[in-house]
Design a protein around this nucleic acid. Structure first.
Length: 550
RNA sequence: UGGGGGAUCGUCUAACGGUAGGACCGCGGACUCUGACUCCGCUAGUCUAGGUUCGAAUCCUAGUCCCCCAGCCA
């Protein structure tokens, strides 16, 4: 077991595995994480990984990484590479157990012939359109194909010629011969093989016929001696076919399929088709745009993998469809980052402050704590001088009752520095506040007044002369509605303000911030330096703000 | 209306015939050199109607609502 101190996670899948082991069905579980390399992994895949790798780890088994690469029309090497990187980033290790469904193409082909020889499959010449019509409807049975009763010899000949490349795409398919009247439509002679004259990222042009999901998945599971094939709910209807194929083929093992509900989150779209549209339509900067729910996007936004794993653990596993509040995700990110992120000061929307009684040209290096949650994180020096920036939100000329921050005549603390009092407000021709004239109390150096007087607020600040200008990218929900997936077209629900780019002033230490490492801008949120050139930061998540809510 | 699933605080999830519990959100309060964090407290739920039982979220019956399936996608 991984961590004896952690509360034991339990769910119906783990109960099934535990029971099977207790009953001696298996010594250890063997699971698999089977992505199709047709896009980037997203947070929904994180759930599947936590389940499959997690169960394998905790019960002493192993989890294979298997690419379900049975449709070369959609798959690319780029995705094979990114998926492996993302699995590792999340913290999972498949060891030597890296597989591809395409590794089994020859075996699968032989098994297809096996089906034909036993009269369990036939080559169908109907067009896709005819096949669809003859499949029947949800309430009416299908009609048998006119080619359903071909002889074994003819089927074998045709299937071999399909393999040999004699026919164009769509000319013929291989279908299992099951039951055209079945209530479960997956059993109405499902297609097993189709002709696709396309380059495959791994097998090149070796093949022009490809098994589809149903013919590849269960058999791949069997070949890898998977004990528990864990998939999402929509495959429930495929299980009878999964079992039928295993029962009619000389497979080395008979895995069992179990289904769980996939992850959904408010304001989040997880359909690969739509994510692909977002990328291709340039609505985002790419698969790793920090607004994307992809692992690459979350990583770039600064979300630590451990927060993702924690989130999946908290969400749990069940068989009921559900939509998790994105607030739960944010909470996981904040909880982890609060413990680990170093604190800095940065001003997002600068308002200049001049300390009138502070000597011109003087600079003091003041002591700041890096992380109050972690003494081992140490401290640093922050330069203070006569001219500073504070946050525009931290000043109000006519403050309401509960406004603790700066206003005319009010004294506040500048963090780690001094108490200052606002004496005068400078405005431009438009009447906008452009500068504050303040005085400071030299006795309050470091942030406390010897006379013990208190202030209601502590403000973050940056010295004008020492400030580093940075581009800061603020991310807001990508969609206007919490359930973008149920919109006619989710892309019409895009939030135009999902990305806000501002020019911020940061304390000098931030200039050497590491790309990808999360930091806290005090009182604002968690930020991570972006890999883009220059000083660029992404907001990972804001701090809770109980004042703004009130 | 065929087949397959599912309904527990606002949200996610426990309970396996025996006190409906936790987390997130929300709301109070304490603390605070981050209106953060932390701590304390509060709010709030078994889809409906019957039945079995000493006792039902759990078992039975009948409903209601929701999701998935008619790709040569996975």
């Amino acid at each position: 077991m991984s961590d004896a101190s952690a509360p034991a996670v339990s769910n119906f899948l783990r109960e099934i595995v535990a029971r099977d082991i207790a009953e001696g069905k298996h010594k250890v579980p063997v699971t698999r994480f089977p992505p199709e390399p047709n896009g980037y992994l997203h947070i929904g895949h994180a759930k599947a990984m936590c389940i499959n790798f997690g169960i394998a780890q905790d019960f002493g088994g192993h989890c294979n990484l298997r690419f379900d690469d049975t449709n070369p029309a959609k798959e690319e090497q780029e995705f094979i590479d990114s998926i492996q990187a993302d699995v590792r980033w999340l913290g999972f290790d498949w060891g030597k157990n890296l597989f591809f469904a395409s590794d089994y193409f020859e075996t699968l082909y032989q098994w297809a012939e096996h089906l034909i020889r036993n009269g369990n499959a036939y080559v169908d010449d109907q067009s896709a359109e005819e096949t669809r019509i003859n499949r029947g409807t949800l309430t009416e049975p299908g009609k048998p194909s006119p080619f359903r009763e071909r002889t074994v010899e003819e089927n074998l000949d045709l299937f071999r010629r399909m393999r040999a490349g004699e026919f164009p795409n769509g000319a013929r398919v291989l279908r299992a011969k099951i039951d055209m009247a079945a209530g479960n439509i997956n059993l109405r002679d499902p297609v097993l093989y189709r002709i696709i004259h396309t380059h495959h990222p791994r097998t090149g042009t070796t093949w022009c016929i490809y098994p589809n999901y149903d013919f590849a998945h269960g058999q791949s599971d069997a070949l890898e001696h998977i004990t528990h094939s864990l998939c999402s709910l929509e495959y429930e209807d495929h299980k009878p076919l999964y079992d039928w194929l295993l029962a009619h083929l000389p497979v080395p093992s008979h895995p069992r399929q179990y289904e769980f509900a996939r992850l959904n989150m408010t304001y989040t779209l997880l359909s690969k088709r739509h994510l692909t549209r977002l990328v291709q339509g340039k609505h985002v900067r790419g698969w790793d745009d920090p607004r994307m729910p992809t692992l690459a996007g979350l990583r770039r936004r600064g979300v630590p993998p451990a927060a993702l794993v924690d989130f999946v653990k908290r969400v749990g596993v069940a068989r009921a469809n559900s939509v998790v509040d994105i607030a739960m995700f944010d909470a996981c990110v904040r909880e982890l980052l609060n413990k680990t992120a170093s604190r800095y000061m940065g001003v997002l929307r600068p308002l200049k402050v001049v300390i009138e009684n502070y000597p011109e040209g003087q600079v003091e290096e003041l002591d700041a704590v890096n992380n109050p949650e972690d003494p081992s994180a140490g401290g640093r020096k922050v330069p203070f001088s006569r001219e500073l920036y504070v946050e525009q939100d931290d000043f109000m000329e006519n403050p309401p009752k509960k406004f603790f921050r700066l206003s005319p005549g009010k004294e506040v603390r500048l963090r780690y520095a001094y108490f200052v009092t606002c004496k005068e407000v400078v405005k431009n021709d438009q009447g906008e506040v452009v500068e504050l004239r303040c005085t400071y109390d030299p006795a309050s150096r470091g942030g406390n007044s010897p006379d013990g007087r208190k202030v209601q607020a502590t403000l973050h600040w940056v010295s004008v002369a020492h400030a580093k200008t940075a581009e800061v990218r603020l991310y807001n929900p990508m969609f206007n509605r919490p359930d973008p997936a149920s919109a006619e077209d989710p892309l019409t629900e895009l939030n135009p303000a999902s990305l806000e780019v501002i020019e911020a002033k940061l304390e000098p230490a931030l200039e050497s911030a590491e790309v990808g490492k999360a930091v806290q801008f005090e009182r604002l949120g968690y930020f991570t330096r972006d890999p883009d050139a220059g000083l660029v930061f992404n907001r990972t998540v804001g701090l809770r703000d109980t004042y703004a809510k009130a």
